[in-house]
Nucleic acid binder design. Structure first.
Lengths: 227, 227
DNA sequence: CCTTCACAAATCGTATATCATTTGAAATAC
DNA sequence: GTATTTCAAATGATATACGATTTGTGAAGG
């Protein structure tokens, strides 16, 4: 009887709301109302908040409380940079284990992405993008690095809601780069080459976003780089 | 009046004991006795345990409890690999900001390490090693990556107690490699070169430990790679 | 009008108490 | 003798209660 503990329920609820943007950065997580809404005492809620804190989704101050982590202008950049690092490594470490089957799946996903370029849906494109890369990094034999990749992607979910604006021109490039990365894997290129290609792929997206953000400078100066 | 919360006290106590090896891997962290020892209720202890869980120091099972995380044979390898990745990147990202002063400090520390090679004290050598690298990566402008480096070093503290055996021959090499990394920084070499040098430096230590471990195979087969 | 102090409301921090679950051991059946 | 069931002890999970800290507000003083 796989009962979900209350602390777990509270954790999921708050995490979902943060990731969906319903709890915006700066929103104060007050124990009592949340506990009341979930019909539980404050104790499990408190525990859940500490978990969110450990993951960096919320900040916490003794005797004051928790709030959804604020996003500094540089947050998007740092997160993407970190994701580029760990995802590049994960992709490279996984590459020797990638089977023809997996390559085929990745190709299929990338074709869907290519097709979707005409009737463009950023949301859907991003989903497929994660799927594509997941095929390439999920078999990474180092669980620590793999975990860091997952955390990075989760953090991106939050940032996208508050700061990420899609750069249309980048999508086409992105799909093409996917093909190149796949080719390197098929060719059993040196792992360092695969790592750098996967890394630069993501850094390329970062650069595109930063460039777009720079060109928009002055217009509605929000706290996020590409608001 | 900077009061330390009880939850924080409990956290520090348990973390210190895990890192010092007093709580060995597999040790069960039972709430009541720990709370009694610290003269507090179980609530703060519980919270502290969840923090340790989030950091990977303890594992947790609902309705069963927590125990100090078990160390699989591959744990040392994966942790070092991850540390090589993030420390290499942090060192490279920090390198443009390194001043002549910092280079001088690093050189001084490395000289102490070189001197200590004669009357060899592994404990002291490891401390100096952290100091040396800290000078090189602490100014990394990406706080996420820097945080990962700190976590990696902390994790190493635990692993060293249970699994790390010093490889004497490696120390000399290590000190020499430090000089080479410093030279690359002084020369303003391409950051990718610095990154790879710093990464390979750590991977070199990993290889040395694994090699020693392999040569000892069969002798007291412990759960750790270099027990 | 500004500053400072005192007080009250909001909220967090922790203790105590109770309920729920797991686990192992004893008893029973086969 | 082994397998199954039952039950009790250990322990975790959560609720409730209360004390502690912070923070805002308004009054008093300058």
């Amino acid at each position: 009887m796989a009962t979900i503990s209350k602390s777990e329920q509270a954790y999921r609820l708050m995490r979902d709301r943060i990731e969906s943007g319903r709890y915006v950065p700066g929103y104060r997580l007050v124990l009592a109302p949340i506990a009341a809404e979930l019909e539980m005492s404050v104790v499990p809620v408190r525990e859940a908040i500490r978990r969110l804190e450990a993951e960096g989704l919320v900040t916490f101050e003794t005797n004051v409380g928790a709030q959804v982590a604020l996003i500094k202008e540089t947050e998007y950049q740092h997160t993407m940079q970190t994701l580029a690092l760990v995802e590049g490594s994960a992709t490279a470490l996984a590459s020797p284990t990638i089977t023809a089957d997996q390559v085929e799946r990745a190709r299929a996903i990338n074709e869907l992405m290519r097709e979707s370029l005409s009737h463009f849906d950023p949301q859907r494109f991003t989903e497929l993008n994660l799927e594509f890369h997941s095929v390439l990094f999920e078999t990474c034999p180092n669980p620590h690095i793999l975990d860091l990749v997952h955390r990075g992607w989760n953090r991106m979910k939050v940032l996208r809601n508050s700061s990420f604006s899609f750069v249309p021109g980048r999508a086409q490039e992105s799909v093409d780069e996917h093909d190149r990365i796949l080719q390197l894997i098929v060719d059993h290129a040196p792992t360092i080459e695969i790592e750098i290609a996967a890394r630069n792929h993501r850094l390329g997206t970062l650069d595109a976003v930063l460039a777009q953000s720079a060109s928009r400078q002055g217009e509605a100066r929000a706290q996020a780089p590409a608001a």
